[in-house]
Design a protein around this nucleic acid. Structure first.
Length: 247
DNA sequence: AACAGGTCCAACCGCCGCCAA
DNA sequence: ATTGGCGGCGGTTGGACCTGT
């Protein structure tokens, strides 16, 4: 429990910022409960953490959101809801607080502004008709780590030059990108489903019915054939499914 | 110039999940 | 199984700033 009667509150001074920055640079992030004592600050651990993450941390981007950032926020919010930290994680230099504040201010603006943004987005979006096999939606397993951004460690994985066939979740730590970054990218090469369950189909099946899908929608061959448990985790979360089927 | 209302955003607060004891 | 400490998150607040009258 924080001893709120003794710790300082309110705006941070330049001196406090310097002390905190020096302390984090010396001891690293984490162990926030030790930071106030180590830095000689009369602040609670949460206040120190918040100040570092939202203001002092290097590479934090200031100023207005660019058009592509706004577009990404809208798409991610549709997919993830108010998961500000997850959304901010896909916007380099932006903090969850920034994204949250931006979204809240966006909500306050007139509906016409939002409609204009949507119209702009729709115009830029190239709807592609492809023939795909649709997996059925079902809840994600708790052990499924994609949504948390944590790396998975498949039993076997052979890197290929063509990374488009590889689930981001199976990439090396250096090149791994959250799966939904791929889901949301607009690369022309990625506008088709590349494969389906268990790697049976490397191309969309032309004999199946035509479906209209968002250009971002892709299905990966994510399975480790030596590890049947992988199959249990191949599922589309309901909100993702709704997102993919939205107009 | 002065005031009121609106907007922005840094900071606070309470809650939750995780983990170790 | 329970409890307490901690990190992390999202919602909310309040003050500074902006804009219109």
């Amino acid at each position: 429990m924080e001893r709120s009667f003794s710790v300082r509150k309110g705006a941070w001074t330049e001196e406090e910022d310097i002390l905190l920055k020096q302390c984090v640079e010396t001891y690293g992030e984490g162990k926030w409960f030790q930071i106030p004592h180590r830095a000689g600050l009369n602040r609670c651990r949460k206040s120190c953490r918040m100040r570092w993450l939202n203001y002092l941390k290097p590479n934090i981007k200031r100023g207005d959101f660019a058009a592509d950032e706004v577009d990404l926020i809208m798409r991610l919010h549709k997919l993830l809801g108010n998961r500000w930290s997850l959304i901010a994680g896909r916007l380099p230099g932006r903090t969850a607080n920034d994204v949250k504040n931006f979204w809240n201010s966006l909500l306050n603006k007139k509906e016409t502004s939002i409609l204009a943004l949507k119209a702009q987005k729709k115009k830029a979006q190239d709807i592609v008709k492809v023939k795909v096999i649709k997996p059925q939606p079902r809840p994600l397993s708790k052990k499924f780590t994609w949504l948390s951004g944590k790396p998975t460690t498949p039993k076997s994985f052979v890197p290929e030059d063509n990374m488009s066939n590889i689930s981001p979740a199976l990439m090396s730590s250096e090149s791994r990108i959250n799966w939904w970054e791929y889901l949301l990218d607009d690369k022309e090469d990625d506008k088709r489903a590349t494969c389906s369950v268990s790697g049976l189909d490397k191309e969309p099946n032309k004999d199946l019915g035509t479906e209209i899908i968002a250009p971002e929608a892709r299905v990966w061959n994510i399975f480790d054939e030596d590890d049947p448990s992988c199959l249990a985790d191949f599922s589309f979360e309901k909100s993702l499914w709704d997102f993919l089927n939205a107009e």
